[in-house]
Computed example of a mutant assay.
Amino acid sequence: MSTPETPKLALSNSSALPALEKLIQVVAQLRSPDGGCPWDLAQTPESLIPYIIEEAYEVVDAIKSGDQQAIAEELGDLLLQVVLQSQIASEVNQFSLAEVAEGIAEKLIRRHPHVFGDVEVSSVEEVRTNWEQIKAEEKGETGAEVKPLSDKLSRYARTSPPLMAGMKISQKAAAVGFEWDNIEGVWEKFEEELGEFRYAIAHEDKARQQAELGDLLFVVINLARWYDLDPSEGLSETNHRFVQRFSKLEAACDRPLSEYSVEELEAIWQQIKVLLAKQKQA
């Protein structure tokens, strides 16, 4: 494979390197024992995990909104997490931001031989196939050293949000034949797990209830897979609808919600659902 030429920076990104250097210096000062910020100095890689997840989701929300200013701001917050993690690691000689950037650049070069090498492709599917093959080779998952599928499933369970992990795990298991014969079998499993969950709620301890809830949700994910639906997107839309309706509910009430009966709130809620449905159809 030929050594790729360094791509020229786009005009709009010509100031990216100085800006990144400034960010690196700011974060280093925040972490400095000499005049740094107590909060930043108290952080560890583990303590920052919730912020990484939160910022990633806020980037997604901004992209969905289409607000370019919000997207740029949220990407900055996410970039801060990368720089901060790298700064903390560099302080104990584990790795640096330079190594992080160099590592991902080299990975992109390796996995795009049709761009940086002499491989020819004719479709997006070929690109995806090559990517997965190269990735497997990097991880020693080809030939006689093929790792069991459970290793990959375990990685999904550790590294993906639960709904996404459940979908990936069920897809991979189904692909090798661990699958129901038809959709009726999935519905039967749903009824079975629902019954076991109801029994656990009535007769068993919290740990068992939690386990049965997980089993029930996993079957719901499999139902979504059979019907080619996205459970994460479905739940996200439901959350947004609930918040929208709840906002309308608050606006429709002239006293604190706690002063209304459940029946009164339900009646207003149903009116709001009808109103929003008509507005959506208009």
Rank of each mutant, 00 (worst) to 15 (best):
N93R: 06
G140F: 08
C37Y: 03
W39T: 13
P256A: 03
I201G: 08
E73N: 15
K280P: 07
L229S: 13
D61R: 15
E204F: 02
L41W: 04
L275I: 14
Q94M: 05
L163W: 06
E137N: 11
E266C: 04
R158T: 06
V59I: 11
K147Q: 15
L84H: 12
P113L: 10
N182M: 00
L9F: 03
S154D: 13
S232R: 09
G36D: 07
Q270W: 04
D205Q: 10
L235I: 15
Q69G: 15
E259K: 10
E212D: 10
A200T: 05
N222F: 00
Q270Y: 06
E73P: 06
N13Y: 12
D118H: 12
E237Y: 06
D215Q: 01
Q171T: 08
P148L: 05
E193F: 01
T142V: 12
Q29D: 13
L75R: 03
I104Y: 12
S150T: 14
G35H: 04
F95G: 05
P7H: 04
K280I: 02
A62V: 04
G117N: 05
K278W: 00
P18H: 01
W131H: 13
R198H: 06
L41I: 04
A165K: 00
G195C: 02
G214P: 01
E74C: 12
R158Q: 13
P50L: 03
F190Y: 14
P45A: 03
V176L: 10
E192M: 11
E137G: 11
L223W: 02
L23G: 07
P113M: 08
E237D: 14
A157V: 06
S247N: 14
V262T: 11
V100A: 02
E191V: 12
G166H: 05
K135V: 05
A19F: 09
L30H: 08
E184F: 09
T3C: 00
K206Y: 06
G66V: 03
L229V: 13
E193W: 01
E141Y: 10
L223Y: 01
L20V: 01
K64P: 01
P148I: 05
D34Y: 05
L80R: 07
I268R: 07
Q85I: 05
S160Q: 15
V60Y: 08
A173V: 04
L153S: 07
R158N: 13
E184R: 13
L11G: 00
Q279G: 03
W269G: 09
P148H: 08
G214V: 05
K8F: 09
Q68P: 00
L108R: 08
I272K: 03
K135A: 15
Q81I: 00
S122I: 05
Q94I: 11
S154L: 13
G143N: 01
Q281Y: 01
L75Y: 14
E73R: 15
P45K: 07
